[in-house]
Design a protein around this nucleic acid. Structure first.
Length: 553
RNA sequence: GCCGGAGUAGCUCAGGUGGUUAGAGCGUCGGAAUCAUAAUCCGCAGGUCGGGGGUUCAAGUCCCUCCUCCGGUACCA
């Protein structure tokens, strides 16, 4: 489905990053890089697109991290918000805004959202028994209680499940329950919460998802599994200090459940994006028009929230557009096992940026993106892709072309006066490649998009070999001029077509070609825009070789 | 346990509704070329598609079963 036919504008989100740790390559592969590539492609294609992301900063887990580290939740989120923002910028992620859920705008916006459902009478209150620590004066979330498993007798069973026998548990079933934070014994106490009637929306959600024939099967099947079990109403408040306070009376010590409030953060951040612009209401065009194409990028662990829970919230509110697609990725593991912040088994963006070119990182992830199944990141893979593909195929083509232009044509674009069949063929293939690559981007096939782009460079190298400009320069300089002109035009096309995945190299290439970044569009990738006689800048190495010693961890 | 996903060349991965000799990239090996970051181009080799059973003229693809890995399982996000 082409964007331009049905939609006037595109609204892209990447899953908000939970601000209790450093962002790692798993996040990049799952929800950030595909969105950034998609957005960059859309901008080049002239679509009206904005890209929203940010930090998710409330909830039990952050409060617990704060307790464990002996600092305030605010200190935790400040540390990781800015660190992660910086990491993303270092990797060239082109958010229109990367904000956070601890802003006043978000507080008001999520309270307003809650209030709308509340005023409609959709929410109801229910009282339930929970474990409460009198020592800490707090209710304990299931996973912060351990005790003896009633099924197998394992003494370290968690409140939500027993790791020993796999039984799903409720904390009230545990024998000898104790808090994982202080070790004291909690007591049973009643607490009243607001519930969102998710069960009422099952039919609408079911119809909605079945109508999405172009969604990935993993996402659709996952939702169908939930429907089969039957959706249950969900508590959307928590007894917690760290969160957005309930906007209703008599609710001290209660906050909005983070998974109710976090996706509203996409809306809040959009409001923030436009608040100081000429048209502060512009966010409404994106969120409240049916001709907006809303696309959520995320990892598979988030499907439930973006394909079921958040859409149901939006349906209940009635004023918002629903997602047009939820292209969820699987996970990118690290050398065979899962990346995890808590276990420290992860490649943090900050660390890898200190050593390697951001485009090398983007390319390595993009060419092995977990679109259909979990994939693995290997350091040896990063080295191989940098040296054998980026350096050898792309970098080398650009370099050998520029060296000719420098050496034999005074650093200018030589004239192309008469094309042979072989020249016309490669020029035509730019056209067909740029349209096939576009189609891959339109359909969220990022691995295919990138490998197809590299195939054009392979063809370009073949063209260079077959036309043998090193011979032409000796006996037919005009012929050599045609070849080098064509190769430079190809370089310009690469700057456009690789922009979504290799933005830094694209920029470098444009600088070498002496053209400005604003001047490029996807359509122009297939046009011969370089004028004969125009001056080139000195060539730079696009990808330096990575030595074996650099990847021995 | 239950729901969902995955298991395909040495490595990393593609393979709508079952259909001719199962694909790509990288790696290996052989050749061509020598402009270029020794970088390119061409070619060969390499797979009983996790195990077993079944349906069918025909199964990587559909059904059953088993094994392994991953996500979720509703108060972690």
């Amino acid at each position: 489905m082409e964007n331009s036919e049905k939609f006037k504008r595109i609204l892209v989100t990447s899953a908000l990053t939970y601000a209790n740790g450093e962002t790692h390559l798993g996040h990049i592969a799952g929800s950030i890089l595909p969105a950034d590539m998609y957005v960059r492609y859309c901008r080049l294609s002239g679509y009206d697109v904005i890209y929203i992301c940010g930090s998710d900063e409330y909830g039990t887990a952050i409060e617990m991290s704060a307790i464990k580290e002996g600092i305030s939740p605010k200190e935790i989120i400040d540390k990781y918000h800015f660190l992660n923002k910086q990491s993303y910028e270092g990797l060239g992620m082109s958010f229109d805004i990367y904000s956070r859920t601890s802003t006043d705008i978000h507080k008001k916006n999520s309270q307003d959202f809650f209030k709308v459902l509340y005023d409609k009478g959709l929410l109801y209150q229910k009282s339930e028994k929970q474990l409460y620590s009198e020592k800490e004066k707090r209710f304990l979330a299931d996973r912060f209680v351990i005790g003896t498993c009633p099924v197998c007798g394992y003494e370290e069973a968690r409140g939500d499940e027993c790791e020993n026998c796999g039984s799903a548990l409720s904390p009230l079933e545990l024998k000898n329950p104790r808090s994982t934070i202080t070790g004291d014994t909690p007591v049973v106490k009643e607490s009243t919460h607001y519930y969102f009637p998710l069960s009422k929306y099952q039919d609408s959600l079911d119809k909605w998802i079945i109508s999405k024939s172009d969604w990935k099967p993993n996402v659709v099947n996952y939702c169908k599994g939930w429907f089969k079990t039957g959706l249950q109403d969900r508590a959307i408040t928590r007894d917690l200090n760290w969160g957005v306070p309930l906007p209703v009376n008599n609710s001290e010590g209660k906050v909005i459940y983070v998974w109710f409030e976090a996706p509203i953060g996409y809306i809040s951040n959009t409001i923030e994006l436009f608040q100081n612009s000429k048209n502060p209401d512009k966010w409404k065009e994106y969120w409240q028009s049916n001709d907006t194409k809303l696309v959520h990028f995320l990892g598979k662990d988030n499907i439930i929230f973006h394909a079921i829970f958040f859409p149901a919230m939006l349906m209940a509110h009635e004023n918002y557009v629903l997602a047009e697609n939820v292209p969820a990725n699987e996970f990118m593991n690290l050398e065979g096992s899962k990346q995890s912040k808590s276990k420290g088994h992860a490649i943090y963006v900050k660390d890898v940026l200190e050593k390697f070119n951001p485009d090398t990182i983007r390319y390595t992830i993009a060419t092995n993106m977990p679109e259909n199944k979990d994939t693995d990141f290997y350091w040896s893979d990063l080295q191989a892709k940098n040296n054998n593909e980026l350096g050898a195929i792309l970098g080398n083509f650009v370099n050998r072309t520029f060296v000719f232009a420098q050496k034999y044509f005074e650093g200018t674009v030589p004239e192309a006066n008469e094309y042979l069949e072989i020249d016309k063929n490669i020029i035509n293939s730019i056209k067909s490649y740029s349209s096939s690559i576009a189609s891959y981007y339109e359909n969220y096939k990022f691995k295919d998009a990138v490998s197809e782009t590299m195939n054009l460079v392979r063809d370009a190298n073949k063209y260079f070999n077959d036309t043998e400009p090193w011979k032409a320069i000796k006996d037919d300089k005009a012929r050599c001029a045609v070849i080098i002109n064509t190769c430079l035009q190809l370089c310009r096309s690469f700057a456009v077509l690789f922009n979504p995945v290799l933005p830094f190299s694209s920029e470098k290439l444009l600088r070498m070609l002496n053209i400005s970044e604003e001047a490029i569009t996807w359509k122009s990738a297939a046009e011969l825009k370089l004028k004969a006689g125009s001056k080139l800048n000195n060539p730079e190495i696009l990808f330096r070789k990575i030595e074996d010693t650099e990847i021995d961890k």
